[in-house]
Design a protein around this nucleic acid. Sequence first.
DNA 1: TCTGGGGTCCTAGGACCC
DNA 2: TCTGGGGTCCTAGGACCC
Length: 392
Amino acid sequence: MSEHVYLHVDMDAFYASVEQRDHPNYLGMPVIVGARPGNRGVVSACSYEARVFGIHSAMPISQAYRLCPAGVFLPVRMARYHEVSAQIMNLLGEFTPGLTQMSVDEAFLDLSGTRRLLGDPADVAQEIKRRVRGVTGLTISVGVAPSRFLAKLGSEKNKPDGLCIVQPGEEASFVATLPLRSLWGIGKKMLASLETHGIRSVTQLREYERSELTAFFGKAAAHYLYNVCRGIDPGLYGSGKSHSISGERTFAADVNDPQIVYGALLEIASSCVFRLREERGQSRTATFKLRLSDFSTTTASRTLDHDVVTAEELYETARALFEERWDKRSSIRLVGCGLAKVVKGKGSVQHQLFSQNDEKRRQVEEAVYRLSKQGLTVQRARLLREADGSEE
DNA sequence: TCTGGGGTCCTAGGACCC
DNA sequence: TCTGGGGTCCTAGGACCC
């Protein structure tokens, strides 16, 4: 027999806490990490002192500034947060090999069957909290439960510096204490949709048959809702089969000049294809995204008959999709492009299929990309022409 | 209010195949 | 003449999460 025990570790106000730790003079102050006030953008994270003013993540930065003009507004230092994150993940990995990192500030630990080795999971959780605070100076919140889903809900429950333990047998009664909105997977729209059917709580949701929920919300959502309100893990974590790589840019001000769009698409395409190569992935599907000044958004994709090998190829495809969709009048707020259905590459087999021209271009692109990463402005167009070995 | 950037998963229609 | 059922792939859009 096996006892299932999972821990979910969630770092508290992570970006803001790292900034306060790196700059102790910000301790106790409302710290808001995100876009620069006056610019387009949102709050990425904020300290608990900032939340007192009504500020929360994803809020437009202009609104946050209005709520708290005296706040400490800081830019996102992603590289730094990844550094601290890696430090914490290493520490967590010392407790169990069953570590799954979910994002920069979250991880699951599978402690199933480790009781004899590690002791009571509640004590392990306390020890982890103590160690993380000792090594990094940061607080975390931890949920302990018989399933991942409940462990995650548990880590949310007593934030910050929280600990919540859901014992086997308490699954259903635990979820009954939670508001629907706090369930992972129920957002604004689903909440409103549930409300139109008179469903306002977990216990009310429990009164519906699976067939009724399917009629209301469709098969997948019904399966999720039916299980979740009974404390049963709906089991939705990445299958890991394929994924996507993409980038996008919101312009500081809306643009009408297609040349600016082309420049952005070329840069984004370069970084996407570079990442694809770094992880030795393969993809045949190019994606494109366009957002106009009225915030209306369209996406498009095109599946090629061969793998994308060069940034040029992704760029040309994205550019073609842009030209098919833009009416040449509307102002453009954002463009993006990327690769979908990226799968693990088969390495050398694929490599032999590259044409010599592709291979040469690929190498030039990589050199250009590395240089531009170092802040050196390179005559990209000329280098790429040289790669063509043609004209001018 | 004036709305980032990176993702995942689901739906639904049409093409195409057996 | 009016017509199956299932499966997979492609595409666009949308909800949701951190």
